[in-house]
């Protein structure tokens, strides 16, 4: 729809509307905007790029706004700066292992249940809908998804305490709010990341001090 709008605008010698987008299959996390009052629009569990016009009535007026959150300043039109997310990952969202230093893959068994749960947390696409949906502009669903993925795997346990301290500290420093258990993030997450991740983040955080 925005492509069509922009074509029309350019052909009439107007400026097109700038918006982030790339894979157009709901996996890269580039796209994201408020549509009719919901992050990624009124349909649950999909990203903006998958939101088809058939979900709207003919002639309906559609309201589109950029993400609104202090840590995501607007750059132009619908494009916001989400580099704060990268900064949180840089603070501790990794397992410290050098290339070549890894043990044989099957030498550390992982419970299937843990591996599956870690996967469910790991599928976050970093789009920022959770922050945009939250009245506190909290990034805790995003942070907790990464914390959970690593907390559930033996490979991630070694640095678990340092990781959770570093990521939470960075999250606070960047101006994200805290969680007050409303659950808007879970309701709007296009990948259906669960609120239980935040509970695990809190447990991990208490254990770290």
């Amino acid at each position: 729809m925005l492509d069509a709008l922009n074509k029309k605008l350019i052909e009439a010698n107007n400026d097109p509307v700038a918006f982030d987008h790339d894979c157009r299959e709901g996996i890269c996390g580039s796209c994201g905007m408020f549509i009719n009052g919901h992050p990624h629009g009124p349909v649950s569990a999909i990203t903006t790029c998958h939101l088809s016009m058939r979900y709207f009535k003919d002639g309906e007026t559609i309201w589109i706004e950029p993400w609104r959150a202090k840590p995501f300043p607007v750059i132009k039109d619908l494009i916001v700066d989400r580099s704060a997310f990268d900064k949180i990952q840089t603070a501790g969202g990794f397992i410290s292992v050098n290339t070549g230093a890894a043990p044989e893959a099957n030498s550390i068994p992982v419970k299937k249940k843990n591996a599956d749960e870690a996967f469910d947390s790991s599928i976050c696409i970093g789009c920022g809908a959770c922050v945009a949906a939250c009245k506190n502009a909290s990034a805790m669903l995003f942070v907790s998804a990464k914390i959970s993925q690593f907390a559930l795997l033996p490979q991630g346990r070694v640095e678990a305490k340092d990781r959770v301290r570093a990521m939470v500290e960075k999250m606070d420093e960047l101006g994200f709010g805290n969680c007050s258990n409303t659950g808007a993030c879970e309701a709007e997450c296009p990948k259906e990341i669960k609120l239980t991740n935040i509970a695990r983040l809190n447990r991990e955080y208490y254990k770290a001090y």
């Binding site: 890894a102 044989e104 992982v110 795997l153």
Partner: peptide
Amino acid sequence: QVIDHFAALGVPFARDYGGTL
């Protein structure tokens, strides 16, 4: 080596009930 490295980095590959890949 690529698989070893990804497993060590915490890539949640599918596993069998015994915990192996």
